[in-house]
Design a protein around this nucleic acid. Structure first.
Lengths: 139, 139
DNA sequence: TAAAGTAATCGGAATGATTCCGAATTAAAG
DNA sequence: CTTTAATTCGGAATCATTCCGATTACTTTA
């Protein structure tokens, strides 16, 4: 997702165009990988020293709820990245545990589930592969 | 996994047979679903009032590392359940977001991944379906 | 472009889960 | 039974996150 697309969503829901949100969006646009909330804080503090924790967490949560950011969790840490669905095709990711970089996995396991879940009310699913990308591989 | 199998693992790694560990194992054996750390605390405090937080969290983490417990995360909460792999067949789960109950999904999406990940070092993967089980379904 | 109204931010305190730590206790080996 | 090392206890410390009242900054309207 581009910064402009993110703003389209924000303005559509009557969120205001603020400096802090622009800084956050620029950061995620450039990062192009999963980053921890702590990394976000350190990065945006460079562009806006004195920014409040509250502002960062509030906007991260809101961006995530609006689908502007993807959120996941690894070893108890929250990770965020700009949502990766420009082609509007549902897919999943390999996530590098060292750098947060991702690689798209075009399949969705929900298509292969044969178990009868008709009595169940499905709210969502998660499929992620974890490991080291070629750059971060040790061997 | 049965309580006895859990003790086999613990004793093999030279962990001692203590009252608190027995209480924890009995609790998970009976629960047979994902429970939050908080639920664990309240339950074991009934059997051993005054048990230290430290003891609970230390053992939960150790059990999880040894594969006695399965651990996942939902809405920022840590969930634990007795490891479900008695038949030693790798599989995944539907998890009820209301009661923590599970249903086995016999397929593994890793078998269907066609993307070439040979340059990647894979450490693990996660596939879970979330929703409401028939009992907890509203409609 | 000034004023008004409301959302957003700030600063720091509060929260809440988890971990740490030194002292006391307990399991198990000799 | 004694020894020794693991385990637990009790509570303080930590750390990420959230809350809150006061201030600031958008955006709309005139």
């Amino acid at each position: 997702m581009s910064i402009d697309e993110a703003w389209d969503i924000l303005l559509k829901y009557d969120y205001k165009r603020t400096k802090n949100r622009e800084i956050l969006l620029r950061f995620f646009d450039e990062a192009d990988r999963y980053v921890t909330a702590m990394e976000v804080r350190m990065a945006v503090e460079r562009d806006n020293p004195g920014i409040s924790f509250d502002t960062i967490y509030r906007n991260l949560a809101m961006f995530s709820k609006l689908g502007i950011l993807d959120e996941t969790e690894l070893n108890g840490e929250r990770l965020f990245r700009m949502q990766c669905a420009t082609d509007h095709h549902h897919h999943h990711h390999f996530i590098c545990t060292a750098c947060g970089g991702t690689k798209s996995i075009p399949i969705c396991p929900m298509d292969s589930v044969t178990v009868n879940l008709s009595e169940y009310e499905i709210e969502g699913h998660k499929f992620e592969i974890y490991g080291r990308c070629p750059k971060c591989k040790v061997g």
